[in-house]
Amino acid sequence: MEVHTENYMGGGTPLACLDAIRRDFPISLHGVGLSLGSAEGLDAAHIERIRKVAERIEPGLMSEHIAWSVVDGTYLADLLPLPMTEEALAVVCRHVDQVQGALKRRILVENPSTYLRFAYATIPEWEFMAAVAARTGCGILCDVNNIFVSAHNHGFDAAAYLAALPVAAVGEIHLAGHSIRALADGSTVRIDDHASRVIADVWALYRIALAQFGSVPTLIEWDNDIPPLDVLVSEAAHAGALMAAAAATALPDTEREAAHADAA
């Protein structure tokens, strides 16, 4: 079970429900408000709120995003795109170090879905992700839908993106549905809205990811226009079936461990 950390920062019923779920399932705390890419530094009060939720829930995984949402003390309530520059990379790495120090554990960072890029970006996004993992020791939450969405929006190769990620760093996969919007110039933009089924092209990309990363814990994100539970369960079952099929055709464990060691 994965929840947004920010929804459990108070007490009362939400936290009591999460406590009850925690008794039966491991929990992944997935934050959306830390703003790892903020030029002005992290909000110490927010880190402390996250630390308290983690202390109570003892999550199996904790993750955040390669994005920013806070400037001049204003929280912009969205995962906003970073310019992929050496300055942004240094800021993100400093903040991942700070958070891992405060939480005394490794976190995963998720690749973003973006709808615009900056003119002077110098680092391809996949290299940026790999560099954050290499410099800080953090893991990567590989959002396969986000890769597909951003590849369409910016014209890069989704499979090449996957191939560039360090295998040993990938600790979780996200899948989700997205929508398509027509723009004034006649092009289309894909929007990661977690409001529908995973599309066939994204399932195909997931198969590639499984072949590359092995049986990594996978989450279906569906938090808008939430469907009947059986629809969600069938999406999760499909992901499980693909994972089982990939494991059956994969290398024997000893060889895969050797491959992981090489990649690390």
Binding site: A77, L80, F118, Y120, A184
Partner: peptide, 22 residues
């Protein structure tokens, strides 16, 4: 700060998310 030819409608996506979410 955006590449040539990037329309304002891409900025509208972010503005819309900000406004709708809050």
């Amino acid at each position: 700060m955006l590449p040539q030819g990037i329309g304002a409608d891409r900025l509208n996506i972010y503005r819309n998310t900000f406004l709708v979410g809050l």
